[in-house]
Simulated assay, not measured.
Amino acid sequence: MKMKSHCPINYSLEHFGDRWSLLIIRDLMFNGKRHYNEFLESGEKISTSVLGDRLKHLEETGIISKEIDSVKKSRIRYSLTEKGISMLPIMLDMVMWGGLYDSESDVNNVFLTQVNNERELLIKSTRERLEKEHLEKSNL
């Protein structure tokens, strides 16, 4: 991937800095979605062409991986990689920021309190869950 510059913010934006990529990562990280059709069912109504493009881009940048689903061989199962899981603190910061400024946010207030008051514990427990669900091959 050719970078426009090597500024750390630009590097981040080149990898995941568009709306759809972040929503796919959100669905993988917090909503348990793992398959193409599950991403299509998200409330934001991503188009099939954009979804395909974003999944390909996230795979090429090493944020997600894909493999044949062990239950239904005709479909692909997407997983976060270690690189993708390492985005957890960023995603939690976005949850906090959006929850603070969106007066109609649908985020659970208990979760916001946990992100705010028990951040390190939440990161640790969520990271452990994500590593088990996404990185351990025995969970296929």
Results as ranks from 00 to 15, higher is better:
M1D: 07
K2R: 14
M3I: 05
H6A: 09
C7A: 08
P8I: 14
P8N: 13
I9W: 02
N10D: 13
S12F: 15
S12L: 15
L13M: 13
E14M: 05
F16W: 12
G17Y: 02
R19F: 07
S21G: 14
L23T: 06
L23H: 15
I24C: 10
I24Q: 03
I25Y: 08
I25V: 15
I25M: 14
D27C: 04
D27V: 00
L28R: 07
F30C: 07
F30R: 10
F30L: 12
N31R: 15
R34M: 08
N37T: 00
E38T: 03
E38P: 01
E38V: 03
F39C: 04
F39T: 05
F39K: 08
E41R: 13
E41G: 05
G43F: 02
E44K: 11
T48K: 14
T48W: 00
V50I: 04
V50R: 01
V50M: 07
L51F: 06
D53Y: 07
R54G: 00
L55P: 07
H57N: 01
H57D: 01
L58F: 01
E59S: 05
T61K: 12
I63D: 02
I63V: 02
I64V: 04
S65G: 13
K66R: 12
D69K: 12
V71C: 06
K72P: 01
K72R: 13
K72F: 07
K73I: 02
R75N: 01
I76Q: 14
Y78Q: 11
L80S: 10
T81D: 02
G84H: 08
M87P: 01
L88S: 04
L88P: 02
D93I: 00
D93H: 05
M94H: 11
M96W: 03
M96S: 11
W97K: 12
G98P: 07
L100R: 15
Y101I: 11
Y101C: 06
D102V: 06
E104N: 13
S105V: 09
T113Y: 05
V115T: 05
E120L: 11
L122C: 05
I123E: 11
K124E: 08
K124L: 05
S125V: 13
R129W: 06
L130C: 06
E131W: 08
E131Q: 14
L135P: 10
L140T: 01
